[in-house]
Nucleic acid binder design. Structure first.
Lengths: 223, 223
DNA sequence: AGCTACTGGATACCTTCAGTATCCAGTTAC
DNA sequence: GTAACTGGATACTGAAGGTATCCAGTAGCT
Protein backbone atom coordinates (compact mmCIF):
# COMPACT_ATOMS: atom_id res chain seq x y z
CA UNK A 1 0.00 0.00 0.00
CA UNK A 2 1.03 3.58 -0.48
CA UNK A 3 1.86 5.89 2.36
CA UNK A 4 -1.46 7.64 2.07
CA UNK A 5 -3.24 4.32 2.49
CA UNK A 6 -1.07 3.44 5.44
CA UNK A 7 -2.06 6.74 6.92
CA UNK A 8 -5.73 6.06 6.33
CA UNK A 9 -5.72 2.57 7.84
CA UNK A 10 -3.79 3.56 10.94
CA UNK A 11 -5.20 7.02 11.40
CA UNK A 12 -1.71 8.44 11.66
CA UNK A 13 -1.15 11.56 9.54
CA UNK A 14 1.24 11.20 6.64
CA UNK A 15 3.47 13.88 8.08
CA UNK A 16 3.77 11.90 11.30
CA UNK A 17 4.59 8.72 9.44
CA UNK A 18 7.35 10.55 7.68
CA UNK A 19 8.48 11.90 11.02
CA UNK A 20 8.69 8.45 12.57
CA UNK A 21 10.53 7.16 9.56
CA UNK A 22 12.93 10.04 9.80
CA UNK A 23 13.46 9.30 13.48
CA UNK A 24 14.24 5.70 12.72
CA UNK A 25 11.19 4.26 14.46
CA UNK A 26 9.59 3.02 11.30
CA UNK A 27 11.48 1.28 8.51
CA UNK A 28 11.08 2.82 5.09
CA UNK A 29 8.74 1.13 2.71
CA UNK A 30 10.05 -1.06 -0.07
CA UNK A 31 10.88 1.40 -2.78
CA UNK A 32 9.16 0.34 -5.99
CA UNK A 33 10.55 3.37 -7.74
CA UNK A 34 12.52 6.49 -7.05
CA UNK A 35 9.55 8.28 -5.59
CA UNK A 36 7.21 5.51 -4.60
CA UNK A 37 7.32 2.97 -1.85
CA UNK A 38 5.20 0.04 -0.86
CA UNK A 39 4.15 -0.43 2.75
CA UNK A 40 2.86 -3.65 4.23
CA UNK A 41 1.12 -5.10 7.21
CA UNK A 42 4.30 -4.92 9.24
CA UNK A 43 4.21 -1.16 8.97
CA UNK A 44 0.68 -1.05 10.26
CA UNK A 45 1.74 -3.20 13.19
CA UNK A 46 4.83 -1.14 13.85
CA UNK A 47 2.84 2.06 13.83
CA UNK A 48 0.47 0.60 16.38
CA UNK A 49 3.39 -0.42 18.53
CA UNK A 50 4.91 3.03 18.31
CA UNK A 51 1.64 4.58 19.32
CA UNK A 52 1.27 2.21 22.26
CA UNK A 53 4.83 2.75 23.41
CA UNK A 54 4.58 6.52 23.33
CA UNK A 55 1.07 7.03 24.66
CA UNK A 56 0.51 4.06 26.93
CA UNK A 57 4.11 3.46 27.86
CA UNK A 58 4.87 7.14 28.03
CA UNK A 59 8.13 6.70 26.16
CA UNK A 60 9.83 9.53 24.40
CA UNK A 61 10.63 9.16 20.74
CA UNK A 62 14.26 8.56 21.58
CA UNK A 63 13.42 5.86 24.12
CA UNK A 64 10.99 4.22 21.73
CA UNK A 65 13.66 4.15 19.07
CA UNK A 66 16.06 2.42 21.40
CA UNK A 67 13.46 -0.14 22.36
CA UNK A 68 12.48 -0.80 18.79
CA UNK A 69 16.07 -1.12 17.73
CA UNK A 70 16.52 -3.72 20.45
CA UNK A 71 13.45 -5.51 19.12
CA UNK A 72 14.79 -5.61 15.61
CA UNK A 73 18.14 -6.98 16.68
CA UNK A 74 16.81 -9.56 19.07
CA UNK A 75 17.14 -13.22 18.18
CA UNK A 76 15.32 -14.68 21.16
CA UNK A 77 12.66 -13.69 23.61
CA UNK A 78 15.21 -13.41 26.36
CA UNK A 79 17.63 -11.25 24.47
CA UNK A 80 14.76 -9.02 23.45
CA UNK A 81 13.60 -8.75 27.02
CA UNK A 82 17.07 -8.00 28.26
CA UNK A 83 17.73 -5.35 25.69
CA UNK A 84 14.36 -3.77 26.11
CA UNK A 85 14.69 -3.72 29.85
CA UNK A 86 17.83 -1.67 29.58
CA UNK A 87 16.43 0.54 26.87
CA UNK A 88 13.43 1.55 28.89
CA UNK A 89 13.90 4.87 30.60
CA UNK A 90 14.50 4.90 34.32
CA UNK A 91 12.23 7.44 36.00
CA UNK A 92 14.90 8.94 38.19
CA UNK A 93 17.10 11.93 37.67
CA UNK A 94 20.08 12.60 39.80
CA UNK A 95 19.77 15.76 41.82
CA UNK A 96 23.18 17.33 41.60
CA UNK A 97 22.47 19.99 44.23
CA UNK A 98 22.17 20.05 47.98
CA UNK A 99 24.54 20.08 50.88
CA UNK A 100 27.48 17.83 50.22
CA UNK A 101 27.77 16.39 53.75
CA UNK A 102 24.27 15.08 53.92
CA UNK A 103 24.58 13.90 50.37
CA UNK A 104 27.57 11.78 51.16
CA UNK A 105 26.11 10.11 54.19
CA UNK A 106 22.67 9.34 52.78
CA UNK A 107 24.17 8.43 49.46
CA UNK A 108 26.30 5.65 50.79
CA UNK A 109 23.46 4.52 53.04
CA UNK A 110 21.21 4.15 50.02
CA UNK A 111 23.89 2.22 48.22
CA UNK A 112 24.33 -0.15 51.13
CA UNK A 113 20.59 -0.65 51.33
CA UNK A 114 20.31 -1.60 47.71
CA UNK A 115 23.23 -3.95 48.05
CA UNK A 116 21.67 -5.58 51.07
CA UNK A 117 18.37 -5.92 49.26
CA UNK A 118 19.93 -7.60 46.28
CA UNK A 119 21.72 -10.00 48.57
CA UNK A 120 18.56 -10.72 50.52
CA UNK A 121 16.64 -11.42 47.35
CA UNK A 122 19.42 -13.58 45.99
CA UNK A 123 19.53 -11.56 42.84
CA UNK A 124 22.57 -11.71 40.64
CA UNK A 125 23.13 -8.21 39.44
CA UNK A 126 26.04 -6.65 37.59
CA UNK A 127 25.91 -3.59 39.82
CA UNK A 128 26.39 -1.58 36.70
CA UNK A 129 22.76 -2.24 35.89
CA UNK A 130 20.92 1.02 35.32
CA UNK A 131 18.15 -0.31 37.52
CA UNK A 132 20.50 -0.63 40.45
CA UNK A 133 21.71 2.89 39.84
CA UNK A 134 18.17 4.12 39.52
CA UNK A 135 16.98 2.44 42.67
CA UNK A 136 19.88 3.83 44.61
CA UNK A 137 19.11 7.31 43.38
CA UNK A 138 15.45 6.91 44.22
CA UNK A 139 16.16 5.75 47.74
CA UNK A 140 18.58 8.59 48.20
CA UNK A 141 15.86 11.00 47.18
CA UNK A 142 13.36 9.45 49.57
CA UNK A 143 15.89 9.59 52.37
CA UNK A 144 16.35 13.22 51.73
CA UNK A 145 12.62 13.64 52.24
CA UNK A 146 12.78 11.60 55.45
CA UNK A 147 10.44 9.10 53.91
CA UNK A 148 12.73 6.18 53.44
CA UNK A 149 11.73 2.58 53.85
CA UNK A 150 12.24 0.92 57.15
CA UNK A 151 14.26 -2.26 57.21
CA UNK A 152 12.29 -5.10 55.77
CA UNK A 153 9.73 -2.97 54.02
CA UNK A 154 11.79 -2.83 50.90
CA UNK A 155 12.20 -6.57 50.93
CA UNK A 156 8.45 -7.00 51.13
CA UNK A 157 8.01 -4.83 48.08
CA UNK A 158 10.79 -6.68 46.34
CA UNK A 159 9.02 -9.96 46.94
CA UNK A 160 5.97 -8.55 45.24
CA UNK A 161 8.12 -7.33 42.41
CA UNK A 162 9.56 -10.80 42.05
CA UNK A 163 6.09 -12.30 41.81
CA UNK A 164 5.14 -9.73 39.22
CA UNK A 165 8.27 -10.47 37.23
CA UNK A 166 7.46 -14.17 37.27
CA UNK A 167 4.03 -13.43 35.90
CA UNK A 168 5.59 -11.22 33.27
CA UNK A 169 8.01 -13.86 32.14
CA UNK A 170 5.37 -16.55 32.12
CA UNK A 171 3.24 -14.29 30.06
CA UNK A 172 6.06 -13.68 27.63
CA UNK A 173 6.58 -17.42 27.32
CA UNK A 174 3.04 -17.95 26.04
CA UNK A 175 3.79 -15.92 22.95
CA UNK A 176 6.13 -18.54 21.56
CA UNK A 177 3.71 -19.62 18.88
CA UNK A 178 4.21 -16.50 16.82
CA UNK A 179 7.96 -16.09 16.34
CA UNK A 180 7.62 -13.21 13.92
CA UNK A 181 6.36 -10.64 16.35
CA UNK A 182 7.80 -12.44 19.33
CA UNK A 183 10.15 -9.69 20.28
CA UNK A 184 7.39 -7.18 19.86
CA UNK A 185 5.23 -9.08 22.27
CA UNK A 186 8.09 -9.16 24.71
CA UNK A 187 8.36 -5.42 24.47
CA UNK A 188 4.71 -5.04 25.10
CA UNK A 189 4.87 -7.22 28.17
CA UNK A 190 7.77 -5.29 29.59
CA UNK A 191 6.97 -1.79 28.56
CA UNK A 192 3.22 -1.78 28.70
CA UNK A 193 2.62 -3.84 31.79
CA UNK A 194 3.97 -1.06 33.92
CA UNK A 195 1.05 1.30 33.45
CA UNK A 196 -1.43 -1.52 33.89
CA UNK A 197 0.23 -2.62 37.10
CA UNK A 198 0.37 0.94 38.31
CA UNK A 199 -3.29 1.41 37.56
CA UNK A 200 -4.12 -1.75 39.43
CA UNK A 201 -2.15 -0.53 42.39
CA UNK A 202 -4.04 2.73 42.36
CA UNK A 203 -7.29 0.85 42.23
CA UNK A 204 -6.21 -1.29 45.15
CA UNK A 205 -5.06 1.78 47.04
CA UNK A 206 -8.37 3.44 46.44
CA UNK A 207 -10.16 0.40 47.78
CA UNK A 208 -7.88 0.20 50.79
CA UNK A 209 -8.39 3.84 51.63
CA UNK A 210 -12.14 3.41 51.36
CA UNK A 211 -12.08 0.40 53.63
CA UNK A 212 -9.86 1.99 56.22
CA UNK A 213 -11.92 5.14 56.36
CA UNK A 214 -14.92 2.98 57.08
CA UNK A 215 -12.77 1.53 59.81
CA UNK A 216 -14.42 -0.68 62.38
CA UNK A 217 -17.79 0.64 61.36
CA UNK A 218 -20.03 -1.65 59.28
CA UNK A 219 -19.35 -1.72 55.58
CA UNK A 220 -21.26 1.04 53.81
CA UNK A 221 -23.64 -0.51 51.32
CA UNK A 222 -23.18 0.17 47.65
CA UNK A 223 -25.53 2.60 46.05
CA UNK B 1 15.38 33.66 55.55
CA UNK B 2 15.36 35.67 52.37
CA UNK B 3 14.63 34.18 49.00
CA UNK B 4 18.28 34.25 48.06
CA UNK B 5 19.11 32.19 51.14
CA UNK B 6 16.30 29.79 50.38
CA UNK B 7 17.81 29.43 46.96
CA UNK B 8 21.23 28.76 48.40
CA UNK B 9 20.11 26.13 50.89
CA UNK B 10 17.99 24.21 48.42
CA UNK B 11 20.09 24.69 45.34
CA UNK B 12 17.09 25.88 43.41
CA UNK B 13 17.68 29.07 41.41
CA UNK B 14 15.82 32.14 42.55
CA UNK B 15 14.10 32.40 39.20
CA UNK B 16 12.77 28.88 39.60
CA UNK B 17 11.52 29.58 43.09
CA UNK B 18 9.65 32.54 41.74
CA UNK B 19 8.34 30.34 38.97
CA UNK B 20 7.02 27.73 41.38
CA UNK B 21 5.47 30.43 43.49
CA UNK B 22 3.83 31.87 40.42
CA UNK B 23 2.52 28.43 39.49
CA UNK B 24 1.01 28.01 42.91
CA UNK B 25 3.27 25.16 43.99
CA UNK B 26 5.03 27.12 46.65
CA UNK B 27 3.27 29.48 49.08
CA UNK B 28 4.60 32.99 49.15
CA UNK B 29 6.85 33.93 52.02
CA UNK B 30 5.51 35.89 54.94
CA UNK B 31 5.79 39.46 53.72
CA UNK B 32 7.69 41.47 56.27
CA UNK B 33 7.41 44.51 54.07
CA UNK B 34 6.17 45.51 50.66
CA UNK B 35 9.22 44.17 48.93
CA UNK B 36 10.59 41.68 51.37
CA UNK B 37 9.39 38.29 52.49
CA UNK B 38 10.54 35.81 55.04
CA UNK B 39 10.83 32.14 54.14
CA UNK B 40 11.01 29.30 56.62
CA UNK B 41 11.82 25.65 56.96
CA UNK B 42 8.47 24.72 55.47
CA UNK B 43 9.52 26.33 52.23
CA UNK B 44 12.69 24.30 52.15
CA UNK B 45 10.65 21.17 52.72
CA UNK B 46 8.11 22.11 50.09
CA UNK B 47 10.79 22.79 47.56
CA UNK B 48 12.26 19.37 48.19
CA UNK B 49 8.84 17.82 47.77
CA UNK B 50 8.27 19.66 44.51
CA UNK B 51 11.60 18.48 43.21
CA UNK B 52 10.87 14.89 44.21
CA UNK B 53 7.42 14.97 42.71
CA UNK B 54 8.57 16.33 39.39
CA UNK B 55 11.82 14.45 38.93
CA UNK B 56 11.26 11.19 40.77
CA UNK B 57 7.50 11.05 40.38
CA UNK B 58 7.63 12.42 36.88
CA UNK B 59 4.74 14.75 37.53
CA UNK B 60 4.12 17.80 35.42
CA UNK B 61 3.92 21.17 37.12
CA UNK B 62 0.15 21.12 36.73
CA UNK B 63 -0.15 17.66 38.26
CA UNK B 64 2.17 18.59 41.09
CA UNK B 65 0.07 21.64 41.81
CA UNK B 66 -3.05 19.52 42.02
CA UNK B 67 -1.36 17.07 44.35
CA UNK B 68 0.03 19.79 46.57
CA UNK B 69 -3.30 21.56 46.71
CA UNK B 70 -4.83 18.30 47.85
CA UNK B 71 -2.14 18.05 50.49
CA UNK B 72 -2.83 21.51 51.81
CA UNK B 73 -6.54 20.92 52.07
CA UNK B 74 -6.33 17.50 53.62
CA UNK B 75 -7.41 17.06 57.20
CA UNK B 76 -6.56 13.39 57.58
CA UNK B 77 -4.19 10.87 56.11
CA UNK B 78 -7.02 9.16 54.31
CA UNK B 79 -8.48 12.27 52.76
CA UNK B 80 -5.01 13.25 51.64
CA UNK B 81 -4.43 9.87 50.11
CA UNK B 82 -7.78 9.89 48.36
CA UNK B 83 -7.30 13.33 46.92
CA UNK B 84 -3.76 12.66 45.89
CA UNK B 85 -4.69 9.41 44.26
CA UNK B 86 -7.13 11.19 42.00
CA UNK B 87 -4.79 14.06 41.37
CA UNK B 88 -2.02 11.84 40.11
CA UNK B 89 -1.95 11.61 36.36
CA UNK B 90 -3.12 8.44 34.72
CA UNK B 91 -0.60 7.28 32.13
CA UNK B 92 -3.09 6.50 29.42
CA UNK B 93 -4.34 8.60 26.56
CA UNK B 94 -7.35 7.63 24.59
CA UNK B 95 -6.55 6.85 21.00
CA UNK B 96 -9.36 8.44 19.05
CA UNK B 97 -8.44 6.84 15.76
CA UNK B 98 -8.78 3.41 14.21
CA UNK B 99 -11.55 1.42 12.63
CA UNK B 100 -14.80 1.94 14.43
CA UNK B 101 -16.02 -1.67 14.27
CA UNK B 102 -13.03 -3.18 15.96
CA UNK B 103 -13.03 -0.31 18.39
CA UNK B 104 -16.57 -1.03 19.48
CA UNK B 105 -16.08 -4.72 19.99
CA UNK B 106 -12.76 -4.59 21.84
CA UNK B 107 -13.88 -1.53 23.75
CA UNK B 108 -16.84 -3.19 25.36
CA UNK B 109 -14.77 -6.32 25.95
CA UNK B 110 -12.23 -4.30 27.88
CA UNK B 111 -14.97 -2.69 29.89
CA UNK B 112 -16.46 -6.04 30.78
CA UNK B 113 -13.06 -7.34 31.77
CA UNK B 114 -12.45 -4.49 34.13
CA UNK B 115 -15.88 -4.91 35.62
CA UNK B 116 -15.30 -8.61 36.13
CA UNK B 117 -11.94 -7.93 37.70
CA UNK B 118 -13.36 -5.45 40.17
CA UNK B 119 -16.06 -7.91 41.09
CA UNK B 120 -13.55 -10.72 41.48
CA UNK B 121 -11.39 -8.59 43.73
CA UNK B 122 -14.36 -7.45 45.75
CA UNK B 123 -13.42 -3.85 45.18
CA UNK B 124 -16.00 -1.19 45.70
CA UNK B 125 -15.42 1.29 42.95
CA UNK B 126 -17.50 4.24 41.81
CA UNK B 127 -16.99 3.30 38.17
CA UNK B 128 -16.42 6.95 37.55
CA UNK B 129 -12.99 6.53 39.08
CA UNK B 130 -10.31 7.74 36.70
CA UNK B 131 -8.37 4.61 37.45
CA UNK B 132 -11.17 2.44 36.17
CA UNK B 133 -11.33 4.53 33.04
CA UNK B 134 -7.61 4.38 32.65
CA UNK B 135 -7.41 0.65 33.10
CA UNK B 136 -10.15 0.12 30.58
CA UNK B 137 -8.34 2.28 28.07
CA UNK B 138 -5.08 0.47 28.71
CA UNK B 139 -6.63 -2.94 28.20
CA UNK B 140 -8.29 -1.73 25.05
CA UNK B 141 -4.94 -0.63 23.76
CA UNK B 142 -3.32 -3.96 24.60
CA UNK B 143 -6.16 -5.80 22.93
CA UNK B 144 -5.57 -3.81 19.83
CA UNK B 145 -2.00 -5.06 19.87
CA UNK B 146 -3.19 -8.62 20.39
CA UNK B 147 -1.34 -8.71 23.66
CA UNK B 148 -4.21 -8.77 26.08
CA UNK B 149 -4.23 -10.67 29.32
CA UNK B 150 -5.67 -14.12 29.40
CA UNK B 151 -8.43 -14.80 31.88
CA UNK B 152 -7.03 -15.02 35.37
CA UNK B 153 -3.76 -13.31 34.60
CA UNK B 154 -5.17 -9.93 35.36
CA UNK B 155 -6.51 -11.20 38.66
CA UNK B 156 -3.08 -12.48 39.59
CA UNK B 157 -1.60 -9.07 38.95
CA UNK B 158 -4.43 -7.46 40.85
CA UNK B 159 -3.67 -9.63 43.85
CA UNK B 160 -0.12 -8.36 43.80
CA UNK B 161 -1.40 -4.83 43.48
CA UNK B 162 -3.58 -5.38 46.50
CA UNK B 163 -0.63 -6.58 48.53
CA UNK B 164 1.37 -3.58 47.44
CA UNK B 165 -1.46 -1.26 48.39
CA UNK B 166 -1.63 -2.84 51.82
CA UNK B 167 2.05 -2.21 52.29
CA UNK B 168 1.56 1.35 51.10
CA UNK B 169 -1.21 2.03 53.55
CA UNK B 170 0.62 0.40 56.40
CA UNK B 171 3.58 2.52 55.56
CA UNK B 172 1.44 5.64 55.54
CA UNK B 173 0.06 4.71 58.95
CA UNK B 174 3.50 4.76 60.53
CA UNK B 175 3.84 8.45 59.85
CA UNK B 176 1.22 9.38 62.41
CA UNK B 177 3.73 10.77 64.85
CA UNK B 178 4.39 13.86 62.81
CA UNK B 179 0.99 15.35 62.04
CA UNK B 180 2.40 18.47 60.46
CA UNK B 181 3.85 16.90 57.39
CA UNK B 182 1.52 13.92 57.56
CA UNK B 183 -0.22 14.68 54.30
CA UNK B 184 3.11 15.24 52.67
CA UNK B 185 4.31 11.86 53.74
CA UNK B 186 1.13 10.37 52.36
CA UNK B 187 1.84 12.01 49.05
CA UNK B 188 5.31 10.64 49.04
CA UNK B 189 4.09 7.15 49.71
CA UNK B 190 1.56 7.29 46.94
CA UNK B 191 3.37 9.26 44.31
CA UNK B 192 6.92 8.19 44.89
CA UNK B 193 6.47 4.52 45.58
CA UNK B 194 5.53 3.94 41.98
CA UNK B 195 9.00 4.49 40.54
CA UNK B 196 10.58 2.45 43.31
CA UNK B 197 8.20 -0.40 42.74
CA UNK B 198 8.75 -0.19 39.02
CA UNK B 199 12.49 -0.25 39.50
CA UNK B 200 12.17 -3.29 41.73
CA UNK B 201 10.10 -5.00 39.09
CA UNK B 202 12.75 -4.29 36.49
CA UNK B 203 15.38 -5.67 38.78
CA UNK B 204 13.31 -8.78 39.34
CA UNK B 205 12.68 -9.09 35.62
CA UNK B 206 16.36 -8.81 34.93
CA UNK B 207 17.07 -11.54 37.43
CA UNK B 208 14.35 -13.73 36.01
CA UNK B 209 15.62 -13.34 32.48
CA UNK B 210 19.12 -14.19 33.62
CA UNK B 211 17.94 -17.28 35.45
CA UNK B 212 15.83 -18.54 32.61
CA UNK B 213 18.56 -18.07 30.07
CA UNK B 214 21.08 -19.82 32.26
CA UNK B 215 19.10 -22.67 33.71
CA UNK B 216 16.68 -23.39 30.95
CA UNK B 217 14.75 -24.36 34.01
CA UNK B 218 12.12 -21.70 34.51
CA UNK B 219 11.68 -22.77 38.13
CA UNK B 220 13.70 -20.68 40.54
CA UNK B 221 14.40 -22.10 43.95
CA UNK B 222 12.47 -20.92 46.93
CA UNK B 223 14.29 -19.43 49.83
C1' DA C 1 20.14 61.26 54.05
C1' DG C 2 22.52 58.49 50.73
C1' DC C 3 23.91 54.26 48.86
C1' DT C 4 23.74 49.55 47.78
C1' DA C 5 21.76 44.94 47.91
C1' DC C 6 17.75 42.76 47.66
C1' DT C 7 12.77 42.16 46.86
C1' DG C 8 8.07 40.95 44.49
C1' DG C 9 5.92 41.25 40.21
C1' DA C 10 5.63 41.40 35.32
C1' DT C 11 7.20 40.12 31.15
C1' DA C 12 10.26 38.43 27.68
C1' DC C 13 13.06 34.96 26.34
C1' DC C 14 15.14 30.18 25.65
C1' DT C 15 15.32 25.11 24.84
C1' DT C 16 13.42 20.75 24.07
C1' DC C 17 9.99 17.77 22.38
C1' DA C 18 6.64 16.07 19.24
C1' DG C 19 4.68 16.70 15.70
C1' DT C 20 2.65 19.56 11.20
C1' DA C 21 2.97 21.93 7.18
C1' DT C 22 5.18 23.51 3.03
C1' DC C 23 7.98 23.18 -0.87
C1' DC C 24 10.19 20.67 -4.28
C1' DA C 25 11.34 18.02 -8.21
C1' DG C 26 10.70 13.35 -9.81
C1' DT C 27 7.54 9.75 -11.08
C1' DT C 28 3.35 7.27 -12.47
C1' DA C 29 -1.17 5.87 -13.49
C1' DC C 30 -4.51 7.19 -16.39
C1' DG D 1 -0.06 15.33 -20.87
C1' DT D 2 -1.53 16.12 -16.67
C1' DA D 3 -3.22 15.47 -12.07
C1' DA D 4 -2.10 12.82 -8.03
C1' DC D 5 1.25 11.11 -5.36
C1' DT D 6 5.97 10.35 -3.65
C1' DG D 7 10.51 10.87 -0.77
C1' DG D 8 13.35 14.23 1.14
C1' DA D 9 14.43 18.59 3.08
C1' DT D 10 13.28 22.28 5.73
C1' DA D 11 10.35 25.42 8.27
C1' DC D 12 6.97 26.12 11.40
C1' DT D 13 3.95 25.38 15.53
C1' DG D 14 2.53 24.83 20.38
C1' DA D 15 3.19 23.21 24.81
C1' DA D 16 6.17 22.57 28.79
C1' DG D 17 9.57 24.00 31.95
C1' DG D 18 12.37 27.05 33.18
C1' DT D 19 15.65 31.56 32.86
C1' DA D 20 16.71 36.17 32.43
C1' DT D 21 15.70 40.97 32.41
C1' DC D 22 13.57 45.04 33.93
C1' DC D 23 11.31 47.58 37.28
C1' DA D 24 10.31 50.53 41.12
C1' DG D 25 10.10 49.98 46.15
C1' DT D 26 12.34 49.26 50.36
C1' DA D 27 15.95 47.64 54.24
C1' DG D 28 19.76 48.13 56.37
C1' DC D 29 23.96 50.17 56.84
C1' DT D 30 26.89 54.30 57.12
Amino acid sequence: MKISELSRTTGVPVASIKYFRRQGLLPAGKATAATLAEYGQEHVQRLRLIKALTTLGGLSIAAAREVLTAVDQAHSTESALGAVSYALPVPVAESPVGDADREAETGSAAEAEVEALIAAMDWQMPGTSPHVQGLTAALRELKRLDADYRPGELVAYAELARSAARLDLDRAATFDDDPVSLAEQAVIVFALSAPVLELLRRLAQEDQVRRRIAGGKPEPDTE
